[in-house]
Simulated scan of single mutants.
Amino acid sequence: MDFKKFLPWIIGAVVIFGIYGWVKGINNTAVTLDQTVEQSWGDVQTSYQRRNDLIGNLVNTVKGAADFEKGTLTAVIEARAKATSVTVDPKNITPEQLAQFNQAQSGVSSSLSKLLLTVEAYPELKANANFLKLQDELASTENQILTARTRFNEAVKPYNTHIKTFPNSLFAGIFGFKEKAYFQAVAGAEKPVEVKF
């Protein structure tokens, strides 16, 4: 049997399987990194959901205080409702979606800060054990949110790097992988805080 006539077929088969394995590796790595980003996004959402749940409890506790400013409570409730209405598709996290999500969550943070400042004028609330516990849990949750956002950005970086580097970038579009957005600081966060005494 003459192997020389089969040699081009064998070389062709080896090259085809090599290319197949290489492209498969590019795709599978992108899938794995994409799943890590989606899991990180789920952690972000879980942290914000915990904050929203705590806000509900906090609002109910504050409502019980006599003559508490209703406008402040309404602002918190409305900001919370707006924030929960903003949805982001973890498969296609665009900078615009993330900015809209970030802005809505920033509204919650702002109205919540005003609520907690207003509470200073109500000694019975400041002494309420349930309120103090909720306030501590909110502070802890804000730290969890920061951690979840940081981990999300850390998960996005290797994914974006993988799909944007050559030659992976040639196949990323074919397989439907798109660049994902990072969490950015809220607009104005770079300005120093003005402290008044």
Rank of each mutant, 00 (worst) to 15 (best):
F3D: 13
F166C: 08
M1E: 14
V88G: 04
G18D: 05
V59T: 05
F131V: 03
N27K: 11
L134E: 06
A104P: 08
W9R: 06
A187V: 00
L170A: 11
K4T: 03
E154A: 11
G18I: 04
T118M: 15
S111L: 09
A189Q: 05
F152Y: 14
T147Y: 13
K82A: 10
L146W: 07
G25Y: 10
T74M: 13
D67G: 01
H162F: 10
L138K: 06
V23H: 10
T74R: 08
P167H: 11
R149F: 06
A99I: 00
A172H: 04
K82P: 01
V86D: 01
G71D: 15
Q35R: 09
L125I: 00
V193M: 08
T118D: 13
S109C: 00
Y122I: 03
S85H: 12
M1L: 13
A66Q: 15
Y20K: 04
A30V: 02
E69A: 09
A83T: 05
S111P: 10
E38N: 11
K196Q: 12
K180Q: 14
N160A: 05
S109K: 06
V195T: 05
A129T: 02
K196R: 14
A172W: 08
Y20R: 06
L125F: 11
W41C: 07
Q184M: 06
E194D: 13
I10N: 00
Y159R: 06
F177Y: 14
Y48S: 05
A148F: 06
F3P: 15
G12L: 15
S109G: 03
A189W: 08
L125P: 01
F3A: 14
K5C: 12
F101Q: 03
I145G: 06
K196S: 08
L146A: 08
T118G: 14
G176F: 12
A139Q: 11
S169C: 11
V86A: 02
T118K: 12
F171L: 15
P90D: 01
V156A: 01
A185P: 04
V31I: 10
W22Y: 15
P123S: 09
N102Y: 02
K157L: 14
V88Y: 12
F3N: 15
W9V: 03
T141E: 08
E38W: 04
G107N: 05
V23L: 15
L98Q: 07
R50V: 00
E179V: 00
